[in-house]
Simulated scan of single mutants.
Amino acid sequence: MASRYWVVSLPVQNSASILWNNLQDQISKHSFDTPLYRFNIPNLRVGTLDSLLALSDDLLKSNTFIEGVSHKIRRQIEELERVSGLETNALTVDGVPVDSYLTRFVWDEAKYPTMSPLREIVDGIHTQVAKIEDDLKVRVAEYNNVRGQLNAINRKQSGSLAVRDLSNLVKPEDIITSEHLVTLLAVVPKYSQKDWLSSYETLTTYVVPRSSKKLYEDNEYALYTVTLFGRVADNFRTSARERGFQVRDFEYSPEAQESRKQELEKLVQDQDMLRSSLLQWCYASYGEVFSSWMHFCAVRVFAESILRYGLPPSFLACVLSPSVKGEKKVRSILEGLCDSAN
């Protein structure tokens, strides 16, 4: 729904059809590129003037809330479609494009009986939209929770060697663990590798000569193994740290590695399932909220027309979509028709 629309009300002096013809004639002569449609509002229950005045105070606030929820759902749809790599779908209300729903608006008597008090209709719409907003918050929070867990795992696997998970970089044959020997993993600054290779054997006693092997290198660091006697491991860590080398705590466990792999796969599946479910829910809920919003607009136009033009209800409601350049001219046409009616 890229177009901007005005929903307007004009006072009827003699005949709504004559006023409609005059409006069409003026628009076609002076602003021919402005789409114009009737906005069909049924005869709603007026109630008392006091009740209309009290209702009018809440209409603007409720309109802002309902419009805000519709925009919130639309933005969520745009984000989900972008993340999913989907083409942007035209938003619909009961299968009808939103522009067509607005320009061909028909009051839903079954959902909003016209004999109901206006306050009851407005409160019902507000409650329904508020429930949808609460549901949206719960669903988005659930999706974001899984996405956050997945992002945290991905950061661990794609960060620098100083912080990332090392389990997918180390193979069983890289690690020696016996009664006396252990293999440590050292993170060496990329430009200090020569220093490491020339000094690691002397950082402490009982280091196995030529036991260091490079396993991986990123933009900042290189990952090396070193084998030594277990009883001097703490001394080696201290000496390495003093030379600017970081010895990472690591225990090779095929079971833990498989568990992490399964956890990652499950999170990916959960994220895809929740994203798809949330997107479908947003499509349906956007249509529901937009429909509610249009019914609310009809009530607002009806109530404010009576307060402005008086009783009995005698006004012409219509929808226009002027261009930015044509807004001033269209506004002048509408004001002229109001002046002639008065």
Rank of each mutant, 00 (worst) to 15 (best):
N219E: 15
W196F: 14
F245I: 08
A317V: 03
V226H: 05
I153T: 07
S15L: 06
S116A: 15
A90Q: 13
L185C: 08
H126N: 13
S192Y: 09
Y221T: 09
Q157A: 10
N40S: 13
Q246E: 11
F245D: 00
S158P: 01
G47C: 04
V301C: 00
L197W: 04
S332K: 12
G148M: 03
S323K: 11
E133R: 14
D25V: 02
V93G: 04
L19A: 07
P35H: 02
S305G: 04
S321A: 15
N151T: 14
L44P: 02
L60T: 13
L185M: 08
Q13F: 08
G47P: 04
V299L: 06
L49T: 12
D174N: 15
T202H: 12
K111F: 11
V207M: 03
R4D: 12
L150R: 11
L181I: 15
I66L: 07
Y191S: 13
K29V: 09
D108P: 05
D58P: 00
E120K: 14
T88Y: 11
E109I: 03
D249F: 03
E242K: 14
T227K: 12
G244A: 00
S15V: 05
F229Q: 12
V232I: 11
L185E: 05
M294N: 10
I176G: 05
F39I: 05
I176N: 10
L203V: 04
L10W: 01
S70P: 03
